[in-house]
Design a binder for these strands. Structure first.
Lengths: 223, 223
DNA sequence: CGGCATCCGGGAAGATACTG
DNA sequence: CAGTATCTTCCCGGATGCCG
C-alpha cells in the first residue's frame, strides 16, 4: 500500500509525458479545441462533441480547471449563465494540437467526410494555411456554421479567428454543416455546386471566396 | 446490432481527433518516444517505460503497427532477434511530441526530478535547444545512460541524435541515471559536483561540456 | 528471456434517467 | 439547460502460464 497514488501517473519527468497527464484523457484535447476561439456553455460543448456523455464532460472540465487549462466564468446578470473559457496557457496548446493534426492527416485512415464542428474547421484553416499563397490579402471573412458565428481576419500570412459576428466582413459563408466548406476547401468541390444544392450561402467578394479555397494545401498522404 | 463499431471512435474529421485515435491511448506516445532514436526490443521498451505491463505494451505495438506508425523487424541470423522500429511517418510525430512537451513543461505540475529515460533526455534536448546559442559549434557528443549509448551531432543550430556508440566524439558523458544530466542542464547543478559525487563521468572537451549546459533554456512557468 | 495469451479486480467511459 | 446519479461495458494494470 505505502501511498495509494492519487491517479495513474507516468512518473516521468518528460514534458510530453506530463502533457499526456494533463490532456491525454479521452476527449480532453477536443474540449480544448471547442474552446479555442471563445468561451462556450456546457450544452454548446456537448453539441460540438458528438458522443461525449454529460458526466465525462463534467469530469474533464473539472480536471482541466484544476490543471489551469480552463476556467469557469459566470457572465454578469441578467445573462447569468456559466461558461467555460481557456486560460492564456490553455490557449497556447493550439500549437501542439496543430502539430498533431498536421501529422495525423497524412494517415490513410483520415476520413475527411466525417462530421466536423465549426471549431474543427477553423482550427484546420489555421493549421493548414500556406502563408506563401496569401500575398496581398488583408480581409475579414465571416463564417456561420449552423448557429455558430466565426469572424476571421486573414492578413500577413496569418488567420486570426474568434467566435463573433462579422457583419462587416468582405466575404461571408453560411452553412448548416462545417463539412460543406471542408468539401470545397479540401475536397475541391466547386462553390457553385454547393450553392446550387442549397448547402452553402456566400455573400460578398466572390473572387476572394474562390481564392480562399486555394490557400490550404493538404500534406501528401503517406506511402 | 447492425455493425458493432470496431472501437470507440470520435467520428470527427478533425486531424487532431484522428491523432488521438492513433496515439491517444495510454502509453502510445511514450512508446513512440522510446523508439524515436532507433529500434528497440520488447524488454528494452519495458525498461524505458516504468509501469507499463507486458500485455498493454503488446496491444500498443500491435495497434501502432496496424496504423503504420511502427514496424516489426527481424534482425538477420545469427542475431535473429525481433525489434520494433518507427516508420518514416511515425518518426515525423516528433514535432507534435515536442510541441506537447514545450507546452506542458510550463505547468507548475511539472516535476523535473522524476525519473527520465535516455530517450526522454535526448528528446528534451532537441525540443529545448536554442539555436541562437550554438554559434560556431559543430561537435559530436556521446552519451551513455545506463546501458544505452546515444550519439549526438550538434551543428548549425540543430542536434541530431541516434542510438549508437560515439567513441570518436569530442565529448562524452556517462551516467546511470538520465536525471543526473537533466539536473545539470535544467537544474543548474554544477558538473563538478556531479562528477565529485560519482554520478557523472565526463571525457573530452570540458569547455564544450560547460557550454553545452547553457544551450537549453526552459520556458517560463505560467503565472 | 522474449513475446503473447488468459484471467481477474478496479476504475474509467458510455448510455440513460433523473433533478434543480 | 446544466449538470448529477446510476448502471453497464470496456479498458487498464497485475499476475500467471505457455511456447519459442
Amino acid at each position: 500500500m505505502s501511498k495509494p497514488v492519487e491517479k495513474r501517473w507516468y512518473d516521468d519527468a518528460c514534458g510530453t509525458a506530463l502533457a499526456l497527464e494533463l490532456v491525454g484523457e479521452r476527449w480532453s484535447l477536443l474540449i480544448v479545441r471547442e474552446l479555442m476561439f471563445g468561451p462556450r456553455r456546457f450544452g454548446e460543448l456537448r453539441a460540438g462533441l458528438p458522443g461525449i456523455s454529460a458526466n465525462v464532460l463534467t469530469q474533464r472540465l473539472e480536471g482541466m480547471e484544476r490543471a489551469g487549462i480552463l476556467e469557469r466564468r459566470k457572465l454578469p446578470p441578467p445573462a447569468s449563465v456559466q461558461v467555460y473559457a481557456l486560460t492564456d496557457w490553455g490557449r497556447e496548446s493550439e500549437a501542439a494540437m496543430a502539430a498533431l493534426g498536421r501529422w495525423a492527416v497524412r494517415s490513410p485512415l483520415h476520413d475527411p467526410r466525417l462530421p466536423l464542428s465549426g471549431a474543427s474547421l477553423m482550427m484546420s484553416f489555421r493549421t493548414m494555411l500556406d502563408p506563401t499563397r496569401t500575398r496581398g490579402i488583408d480581409a475579414r471573412i465571416g463564417f456561420r456554421i449552423g448557429p455558430d458565428p466565426f469572424a476571421a481576419h486573414l492578413h500577413d500570412g496569418a488567420l486570426d479567428v474568434v467566435r463573433a459576428e462579422a457583419d462587416d466582413a468582405a466575404l461571408r459563408f453560411a452553412t448548416e454543416e462545417a463539412g460543406t466548406i471542408a468539401a470545397a476547401v479540401y475536397g475541391g468541390v466547386p462553390l457553385a455546386d454547393l450553392e446550387a444544392g442549397g448547402a452553402l450561402r456566400i455573400e460578398g467578394d466572390r473572387a476572394l471566396a474562390e481564392r480562399f479555397m486555394t490557400l490550404f494545401p493538404l500534406p501528401p498522404k503517406i506511402a
